[in-house]
Each structure stands twice: as C-alpha cells, then as structure tokens.
C-alpha cells in the first residue's frame, strides 16, 4: 500500500510552478513563469505562448501614448451610490474598499495624449475596479471624453474591458448605454474618428454600447467579447461551447471586428488609422 501513497505525492508539479515573492508571474495559458521585468518589457504578453495578460489603464497609457504626453482629465469623479444599494455588503463600502485597494477612483480613466505626436482623446477602462463595470461615473467620464474630442476636433480612442453595467447602480447604469451612445452619435455627425479597442474581457452593457460602435473596431488576440457571458450562454443552450467561442478571432470571423491586433502592434496600428482618417 505504501507505494500507492508515494505515487500520489510524486505528481505535484503544480507546487513547483507557484510564483515566489512577487517577482515572478505565471502565464494563465501555458503556465510559463516569467520575470516581472521581462513581462513588462514584453508589454505583458507571454513570450512563450503570446497570451495577453489583463492589464489596466496605467499600462495601456504607457504602451500607447508618447512618453509624458498623457494628461488625465476628470480624475476626481467618484460614485455617489444614488440608490443606497446594499447586497451582502453596502455598495458604499465596496467602493471605498476598491478605491483603497486599486488606487483608482472608478473603472475608467480618461484624458488626452499623443500617439507618435498625433493628438488624441483617450479613455481606458480598468477591469480591476469592480469588474470594469459601468455605472454613472464611467458613463459620465466617457461622455465627457467624447465631448472633449468634439471640442478639440481630435480623434477618440476607447479601450474597453468590462463585465458590463454595474448592478449596484441599477437603472442608472443601464441608462449609461444610451448616454454614451448618444454622445457618440454627436461625434459621428461631426465626422470625428472614433476607434474602439476591445480587450479581455468586454461583455454586457459596454459591448452593447460604445465598444461596438467604433468607426473601426480592434481587438487584442483571444479576448472574450460578447453580450452574454459564456456561463450564461452555456446554461441557455445546455451544451458545451465550441472552442474559441466569443474570442476575438471568432468575433472577427462573424463580422463584428475589423481586426485583431497584437499588443506590440497596437500603437502603430492606431497611428496608421488615425493618419488615414484625419
């Protein structure tokens, strides 16, 4: 009996791949252990399997914008909890805690910057802030960014990553779909370019509003993009989902994206497009 037990102990390669001391990151896709510095130099893309790590606004601004060109706007808008929403804990506490933990004020940061010396208005969502969910703050900041683009007559870029509308602001969250889309209608009428960049994951109300409304829709490789989440779809049809379902390449194949672009080529791609649309 003894060697039965031993054989189990021996199959424990899992433990060896754990990340020690916060200097190393593990790739979710292939399990590769990558040094943090190497990962950053590779724009948070796994050098072995090309898996694009989820990153936030800080990283995207550093990847896409010319050095020191980013000027943040409307940084001090925070959620008001207009409905006094309480589920398992009060929404107010959830907000406070998330602000403390992430150092962010809500799920989007906006501002102006330069892409190879071209002026742009840019907004980037942070999935780390309550699942990148869109409440009144996200709606208002996106809406102001669009107005800024209108006023400056400069192109708009929005980088999305979101689980959808924020439940704790209920109907207010839902109305942000109309609010942001209405502003985009104005931008469109003024003939100012809007490029939407969809990253992993972009689902729900954000996909069902501004993320799908770009003059050009770009996605990063293998990003989850959809209306309903895969769990819900699986529940609905009662079958396993086909491989690659709702991933960038699939969504592009179905006709809803113009291109899937590797993170290292994103800045050049945006530049080329802006050059042509400007």
């Amino acid at each position: 009996m003894a060697w039965f037990r031993r054989s189990k102990e021996n199959i424990s390669s899992q433990q060896k791949k754990d990340t020690p001391g916060g200097i190393w990151s593990k790739c979710d896709e292939c399990g590769e252990i990558i040094h943090k510095v190497a990962l950053e130099q590779n724009l948070w893309v796994c050098p072995k399997c090309n898996h694009h790590f989820r990153i936030g606004s800080k990283e995207y601004f550093s990847i896409l914008l010319d050095e020191k060109s980013f000027k943040e706007t409307d940084a001090n808008i925070t959620s008001k909890d207009p409905l006094n929403f309480v589920d398992t804990k009060p929404y107010k506490d959830r907000i406070k805690e998330t602000i403390r933990k992430t150092g962010l004020n809500d799920a989007v940061r906006t501002g102006t910057g330069k892409i190879y010396k071209q002026d742009v208005v840019i907004a980037c969502m942070d999935f780390g802030f309550i699942g990148g969910s869109m409440g009144a703050v996200v709606g208002e900041k996106i809406s102001r960014a669009i107005q800024k683009a209108l006023k400056m007559k400069k192109p708009l870029i929005i980088i999305s990553s979101s689980g959808g509308a924020r439940m704790m602001e209920a109907s207010y969250s839902l109305m942000q779909l109309a609010k942001t889309s209405g502003m985009l209608a104005k931008l469109s009428q003024a003939g100012i370019p809007y490029i939407s960049v969809l990253t992993d994951p972009t689902t729900g109300g954000v996909t069902a509003s501004f993320a799908m409304l770009g003059d050009v829709n770009i996605a990063e490789p293998n990003a989850l993009i959809g209306f309903a989440g895969p769990r819900v779809v699986k529940q609905t049809i009662g079958k396993d989902l086909p491989k690659g379902f709702q991933r960038s390449e699939f969504v592009m194949e179905k006709g809803f994206l113009d291109m899937v672009v590797h993170r290292k080529d994103l800045k050049t791609t945006l530049y080329r497009l802006l050059e042509m649309l400007g």
Partner: peptide, 22 residues
Amino acid sequence: PGLEAEERGQAEAIARNIFEMC
C-alpha cells in the same frame, strides 16, 4: 443569450439600435 444570438452580434445589434434611436 443563445449561441447563435452571440454569433450574429447581439451586442452590436443593441448598440446600433441605441445609437440610431438617439
């Protein structure tokens, strides 16, 4: 929230309607 609905762009269809209705 079905498979074909996703394939045919449920999110895009809703986004487009909201955008146009404005």
